Amino acid sequence: MASVNMADVKRLRELTAAGMMDCKKALEESEGDFDRAVEILRLKGAKDVGKREARTASNGLVAVKQDGESAAALLELNCETDFVAKGERFQELAAQVVEHILATRPGDVDTLLASSLDGKSVKEHLDEANAALGEKIEIRRFAVLEGGYIGAYMHKTDPQLPPAVGVLVQLDKPNADVAKDIAQHAAAMAPKYLNAEAVPADVVEKERALFEEMTRDEGKPEAAIAKIVEGRVNGWYKDFTLLQQAFVKDNKKSIAKYAEENGVEVLAFVRFKVGQA
């Protein structure tokens, strides 16, 4: 098996919350491949590894800008320390950039960086902030939702820091209370996809293969494996798709059921957490 250093072990432990020795063994077995190491930890039953692998890994903030009730932009702006994240200049830069995103609707980060803002490119604004603040400042991602009714929720994980979690929820018709409830739910429960249909086929196949391997390792009868695997895939959907998740305020109903009872349809959502994939 390949040797690993303690820095790599620490990084995997931070990503997964698994034990130190489990992380070391998984990295040795995977020959340093972090994605495979996460799968190995899941196969060996490390508690909640799949749900914890995207923990916060950097500093910064999430900023939002809304235009009435039917358009909004969300931005994740990163820095190296929370000292800079809570600074006025960094927060002003984020507000300036997210407003620019909503006004110009760039297609991707590269297009955004090249776009003109107050006579300079966005990249030049970031470079100036880098020089002034003494840290690497970068735009990690952004999103824009438009149409229907857009609700937003921003959450501070530390009252002394700017929001680290931001959610946009798009409904087919106005309902501020439902939009807020679903946005707060998404902030807490971290769904990755809207529904089962939104999950990429390669992701489903990867999970299915992993569950099949788990089931075989458990010694289940061959005739029962397909049914067990399908049940585990459906359970995965309930963990990671917004509409199938149990509503945090009433776990006897799904988000889809809650929306239906209130006469609205959830069209889309975006959730950013600083440092999270």
Rank of each mutant, 00 (worst) to 15 (best):
L117T: 11
L117A: 12
K173P: 10
Y149P: 06
N130E: 02
R141F: 08
S116V: 14
E230N: 05
R208N: 03
R105G: 01
E197D: 14
L77F: 00
L41H: 09
Y258W: 09
M1Y: 11
E124V: 08
A71Y: 01
F247P: 02
K25T: 10
M6E: 15
L27C: 06
P200Q: 11
M189L: 11
D67S: 11
V229N: 05
V122W: 06
A114W: 05
E218S: 09
A95E: 15
G263A: 05
E146V: 03
K86R: 12
L171D: 14
K220F: 01
H100Q: 13
I137M: 10
A268G: 01
G45Q: 09
V233E: 03
E230S: 05
I101G: 14
G32M: 03
L171W: 15
I137F: 07
V264Y: 04
R140L: 07
H155Y: 13
K206E: 09
L43D: 02
V9Q: 14
V270M: 07
P163M: 03
T241G: 08
F247K: 05
A63N: 07
L77I: 03
L126T: 02
N59Q: 13
D239N: 10
V9E: 13
G235S: 05
F34A: 03
T215D: 03
A176L: 11
Q91T: 04
Q245K: 08
E88W: 11
P159S: 06
A183R: 08
A143R: 07
D48R: 02
E212Y: 09
L15E: 10
G147V: 03
A17F: 04
N175Q: 11
E76W: 00
A198N: 10
L77Q: 00
Q91H: 08
K180Y: 04
G50C: 06
E197P: 04
R36S: 04
R55Y: 08
R13F: 10
K252A: 12
A85E: 02
R42I: 13
G45C: 07
T104P: 10
G134L: 06
V229C: 05
Y237M: 10
D250H: 07
S3H: 15
D217H: 13
K47C: 00
F142E: 07
G263E: 04
G275K: 09
I182N: 11
D177Q: 13
A26P: 00
R232A: 04
P159T: 04
V122S: 05
A187I: 04
D127W: 02
Q91W: 13
F269T: 06
E128G: 08
L267S: 00
L75E: 00
D250N: 13
C23W: 01
R42S: 12
R55M: 09
G68Q: 03
A37I: 05
